[in-house]
Design a protein around this nucleic acid. Sequence first.
DNA 1: CCCTGATTCGC
DNA 2: GCGAATCAGG
Length: 238
Amino acid sequence: MSWTDERIEKLTKMWEGGATASQIAEELGGVSRNAVIGKAHRLGLKARPSPVKPNEKAETPAPAARPAPAAPAARPVATRAAPAAPIAPRPAPPAEVRPEPAEPAPAPVRAADSADASESAPVAKAQPRIVSVGPGGFLRQGPGDQQAPIPPAPPRRLVPARPSAEIADKTSLLDLNDRICRWPMGHPGEPDFHFCGDKVNPGFPYCVTHCGRAYQAQLPRGSRRPPPPLPFGGPRVR
DNA sequence: CCCTGATTCGC
DNA sequence: GCGAATCAGG
């Protein structure tokens, strides 16, 4: 495969859109991740949060950790280089400091993509949902509707629970069983933290009241937050 | 191990 | 110019 204008354009768009080199390579097809990175660099597209780059320390005066005394030839196999002593002793001290001249890097103008919103409309196919009303009056969710019920009460701090005290008549963790509502009241770690303790709505871990809070119906289609527009192409099909 | 981007260097 | 091999951090 060669780098046609279209492919270069796609590469550029995706790269600037934040896609990884692997994704871009897969999308383009016929090229490897390395090819994409290499091309991107040649195009001058670099400058992206690299997991390995942020290091810019030009100061390594302490050669403490340089266990390569005379034979740094740790290369297992020289697949490409001449196998016969290509090892040029390179005692080059890292004292080399580059003042980094003014890089003619064009100001990374982000956002404000002119005329681009036209093609970014990833509309999910609307499918009719089938809901049923549960015993508590709440809407049941189908398996595909799993919406991760709103976490009832995330812990705000880690404090060793203090048994005894004023929770004597409250439902504690040890009192939980399959028949009583385990909806947390208060926050773990707090002295009066306990569980609801009511009779459960048969088949559910909570009472009728808390089932209503745990299982919430989908928001109306109109008032749902639309997914953010993708900077390139569309959603991956896979 | 997997992933990532950066770099090198023979082609 | 290209990209596999390699490096190096997360």
